[in-house]
Computed example of a mutant assay.
Amino acid sequence: MAARYDALPLALDVEHLSQTGELMALLLRLKTWHIVYPHIYRRNSFAIRDEPFPRLGYILREHRCGLSAPTGEALALPPPRPSDHPGF
């Protein structure tokens, strides 16, 4: 996925990260980004502390060639699909 932040081009992996995935990305010294379409925000220690897993949008990591894509528990669960059943 390609994006722009402060007029600089970004290359991002398309997989949505869980909290574990974000931690793994940070340990690999990769930047993480909070995407709330059409806006993009760089995650920092304050954002991670205040909202470890955002209620809106999703978290992506920067792409670096040679690293494998995140898998397993590093990926966020897919959002629930709306259903016709009201749940009561």
Rank of each mutant, 00 (worst) to 15 (best):
residue 35 I to A: 12
residue 35 I to N: 03
residue 35 I to Q: 10
residue 35 I to E: 03
residue 35 I to H: 11
residue 36 V to F: 08
residue 36 V to G: 05
residue 36 V to L: 12
residue 38 P to E: 10
residue 38 P to M: 11
residue 38 P to V: 15
residue 38 P to L: 13
residue 39 H to Q: 12
residue 40 I to G: 00
residue 40 I to S: 08
residue 40 I to P: 05
residue 40 I to D: 09
residue 40 I to V: 14
residue 41 Y to H: 15
residue 41 Y to C: 02
residue 42 R to N: 00
residue 42 R to M: 14
residue 42 R to K: 09
residue 42 R to Q: 12
residue 42 R to Y: 01
residue 42 R to W: 06
residue 43 R to A: 03
residue 43 R to M: 07
residue 44 N to L: 06
residue 44 N to E: 10
residue 44 N to V: 07
residue 46 F to K: 10
residue 48 I to T: 11
residue 49 R to T: 09
residue 49 R to M: 08
residue 50 D to N: 14
residue 50 D to W: 00
residue 50 D to P: 00
residue 50 D to I: 01
residue 50 D to T: 08
residue 51 E to W: 01
residue 51 E to M: 09
residue 52 P to G: 11
residue 52 P to R: 09
residue 52 P to D: 07
residue 52 P to A: 06
residue 53 F to T: 07
residue 53 F to I: 04
residue 54 P to G: 04
residue 54 P to D: 08
residue 55 R to P: 01
residue 55 R to D: 11
residue 56 L to I: 04
residue 56 L to K: 10
residue 57 G to D: 00
residue 58 Y to V: 02
residue 58 Y to M: 05
residue 58 Y to D: 01
residue 58 Y to L: 06
residue 59 I to E: 01
residue 59 I to N: 00
residue 59 I to Y: 01
residue 59 I to V: 14
residue 60 L to D: 00
residue 60 L to K: 14
residue 60 L to G: 00
residue 61 R to C: 13
residue 61 R to Q: 10
residue 62 E to W: 08
residue 62 E to P: 01
residue 62 E to D: 15
residue 63 H to V: 03
residue 63 H to C: 05
residue 64 R to S: 12
residue 64 R to N: 06
residue 64 R to K: 15
residue 65 C to N: 12
residue 65 C to S: 12
residue 65 C to Y: 07
residue 66 G to H: 10
residue 67 L to Y: 09
residue 69 A to D: 15
residue 70 P to S: 02
residue 70 P to G: 00
residue 70 P to D: 04
residue 71 T to D: 12
residue 71 T to E: 13
residue 72 G to N: 14
residue 72 G to C: 11
residue 72 G to D: 12
residue 73 E to C: 08
residue 73 E to A: 15
residue 73 E to K: 11
residue 73 E to D: 15
residue 73 E to S: 13
residue 74 A to H: 10
residue 74 A to V: 00
residue 75 L to A: 06
residue 75 L to Q: 06
residue 75 L to F: 05
residue 75 L to Y: 03
residue 75 L to S: 03
residue 76 A to I: 02
residue 77 L to N: 07
residue 78 P to T: 08
residue 78 P to H: 02
residue 79 P to Y: 04
residue 80 P to D: 09
residue 80 P to C: 10
residue 80 P to N: 15
residue 80 P to E: 14
residue 81 R to E: 13
residue 81 R to S: 14
residue 81 R to V: 15
residue 81 R to P: 02
residue 81 R to N: 07
residue 82 P to F: 12
residue 82 P to I: 12
residue 82 P to T: 09
residue 82 P to E: 11
residue 82 P to V: 13
residue 83 S to P: 00
residue 83 S to I: 08
residue 84 D to G: 05
residue 84 D to C: 07
residue 84 D to W: 10
residue 84 D to H: 11
residue 85 H to P: 00
residue 85 H to A: 05
